[in-house]
Design a protein around this nucleic acid. Structure first.
Lengths: 101, 101
DNA sequence: CTATATTTGTCAATAGTTGACAACTGGGCA
DNA sequence: TGCCCAGTTGTCAACTATTGACAAATATAG
């Protein structure tokens, strides 16, 4: 599982000298769970990012971007055609954006 | 569900005047299933792409690229930060590639 | 050794996916 | 009109995967 996200939130948590057991309850999970999330062993839900960014006083967009990048990476990580696929996907994204939808 | 892949295989099938009921059994599925796949209503498994490219005499890499692009698109389609995330993911991909793994 | 922080392993409950089938729609044509 | 035929839609039980929760193990510091 890709994990720039987990690495980053661990970094943020440690910078603020917060313990897993302090942060976990705020996210309504237990300590082992948060540990696993930070190490990318368990997936993070999109909705949890908002709470995380508040608790860790982090920029939500930064975290969201990392989280999305992880999802994307998971899709293509073992693929020879990763770069080609990314290009095609990017084209599609920009096309849809232009069409207001 | 993103569906450049489905659109393309439908196109290929129609170009060759093949019917759903002719192609579906070759892929070990029934007609409704293939119909749904072509319209993006059901996901396609990675392993099915090889068989599909053979049955439809298509370039496997082309189909694989479209399929991957669909997966990527599904991840970011409703995201404001889609482009940023794509950039980050691309960086990661190229980094890992450089590190031989 | 003890206390505290984190990690690992396990598992039942739940949620999601799958393949299969029946039923329906729409078009063509006798 | 009625009957095919190609494709579509809806449903559902069986299966698979994910989840949250907990106990136990490990690691680190005094």
């Amino acid at each position: 599982m890709a994990n720039q996200f987990g690495v980053r939130i661990r970094q943020l948590r440690e910078q603020q000298n917060l313990l897993l057991r302090q942060v976990a309850p705020l996210l309504k999970m237990d300590t082992p769970m948060l540990s696993k999330i930070e190490r990318g062993e368990r997936p993070v839900k999109r909705e949890q990012i908002t709470v995380l960014s508040e608790v860790l006083k982090a920029d939500k967009n930064e975290l969201l971007t990392l989280w999305l990048a992880d999802q994307i990476y998971d899709v293509v990580k073992d693929e020879k055609l990763a770069n080609e696929a990314m290009q095609v996907a990017e084209k599609t994204i920009n096309l849809k954006k232009r069409n207001k939808k």
